[in-house]
Amino acid sequence: TYYTVKSGDTLNKIAAQYGVSVANLRSWSGISGDLIFVGQKLIVKKG
């Protein structure tokens, strides 16, 4: 599943919304830090 980052989103908010960890969200999407951008597509795998 892809999630497109919206204004005001954080990795914590997105992870909580999908019931996954921030570490997994980073790993799946190839992100090393906490910086995400509006319009960026993140990969989300539901448990």
Rank of each mutant, 00 (worst) to 15 (best):
Q17H: 11
Q40H: 03
D9S: 01
A16G: 09
T4W: 11
K6H: 07
G19W: 05
G39T: 04
V38K: 07
K13N: 11
K13Y: 10
S29V: 05
V44Y: 04
G39K: 02
Y3I: 08
L11A: 02
G39Q: 03
V38W: 04
G39F: 05
T1P: 10
V5M: 02
L11W: 07
G47A: 13
L35W: 11
K45S: 13
G30Q: 11
G19Q: 10
S7D: 14
Q17E: 13
Y3C: 06
K46S: 13
V44I: 15
A15Y: 02
I14K: 00
K46F: 14
I31Y: 05
K41W: 07
S32W: 09
S29D: 02
A16N: 11
W28R: 02
N24R: 08
W28Y: 06
T4Y: 14
K6G: 07
L25E: 00
K46N: 14
S32G: 09
N12A: 15
S7E: 15
A15W: 05
D9Q: 01
K45Q: 13
T10A: 04
L25V: 10
G33F: 07
L42P: 01
V5H: 02
G8H: 06
W28E: 05
G19D: 09
T10F: 03
V20C: 10
R26P: 02
I14Y: 01
G30V: 05
D9A: 02
S21P: 07
S27G: 09
F37E: 10
A15Q: 01
S7F: 13
W28I: 05
N12W: 13
K13I: 10
K45P: 09
I43N: 08
S7N: 12
S29F: 04
D34C: 09
V5F: 03
N24H: 10
S27A: 15
I43E: 06
D34R: 06
A23G: 10
D34P: 07
N12C: 12
T4P: 02
A15G: 06
Q17Y: 12
L42C: 02
V44A: 03
A23H: 11
F37D: 07
V5Y: 03
F37W: 11
S21V: 04
D34A: 08
K46Y: 14
F37H: 12
I43A: 08
S21F: 05
Y18T: 08
S27N: 13
I14H: 00
F37L: 09
I14D: 00
D34V: 07
S7G: 09
Y3D: 02
T4H: 08
N24M: 12
S32H: 12
S29T: 08
I14G: 00
K41S: 09
V22R: 04
S7H: 14
T4K: 07
G39M: 03
L11D: 00
Y2Q: 09
W28H: 04
Y2L: 10
K45N: 12
V22E: 09
G47F: 13
V22T: 09
A15D: 00
I31A: 04
Y3P: 01
F37P: 04
I36E: 01
G39P: 00
V22I: 11
V5Q: 00
L11S: 01
I43R: 09
I36F: 06
K6E: 09
D9F: 01
W28M: 08
V5C: 06
D34I: 07
S7A: 15
G8I: 03
K46M: 15
Y3H: 12
T10R: 03
Q17A: 13
G30H: 10
L35P: 08
T4D: 05
L35Q: 14
K41Y: 07
Y2F: 12
V38N: 06
S27H: 14
G47P: 15
Y2V: 14
K41M: 13
D9N: 02
W28A: 06
I31H: 03
V20K: 01
Y18G: 01
K13G: 13
V44R: 01
K6N: 07
G19M: 08
V44G: 01
I14E: 00
V20E: 08
V5T: 03
S27E: 15
K45A: 13
Q17W: 12
N24C: 13
F37I: 10
W28Q: 05
W28P: 01
Y2R: 07
I43V: 13
T1I: 15
I31T: 05
K45R: 13
T1Q: 13
R26W: 05
T10H: 04
T1D: 12
T4G: 02
V22W: 04
Q17M: 15
A23E: 15
A15H: 01
I31R: 00
N12G: 13
R26K: 15
S21K: 06
S7K: 14
N12H: 14
K46R: 11
Q40C: 06
D9G: 02
V5W: 05
K13Q: 11
W28C: 05
Q17P: 00
L11K: 00
G47Q: 13
S21R: 04
I14W: 02
V22M: 08
G33D: 11
D9L: 02
I36W: 03
S21N: 06
S32M: 11
K46L: 15
L25P: 00
S32V: 14
S29W: 05
A16Q: 13
V5P: 01
A23I: 10
V20R: 00
A16R: 11
A23F: 08
T10D: 08
Y18R: 03
Y3N: 01
A16H: 11
G19L: 07
N12L: 14
V5I: 06
Y2S: 09
G33I: 07
I36M: 04
I14S: 00
L11G: 00
Y2K: 07
G39L: 03
L11T: 02
G39V: 04
Q17F: 12
N24P: 01
V38A: 10
G47S: 13
Q40A: 05
D34Y: 09
V38Y: 04
D34K: 06
A23N: 10
I31G: 02
G8W: 04
T1E: 15
V38Q: 08
D9E: 04
S29K: 02
T1S: 12
Y3Q: 02
G39C: 05
Q40V: 05
K13E: 11
G30F: 07
G39R: 02
Q17C: 12
D34G: 08
D9R: 01
Q40F: 06
K13F: 10
L11M: 07
N24L: 13
K6M: 10
K6A: 09
S32N: 12
Y2P: 07
G47E: 14
I43K: 09
F37V: 11
S7T: 13
A15L: 04
F37K: 09
N24W: 08
D34Q: 07
L25F: 03
L35N: 14
G30L: 07
L25A: 00
K41E: 10
I14A: 00
K13C: 09
S29H: 04
G47I: 13
Q17G: 07
G19H: 10
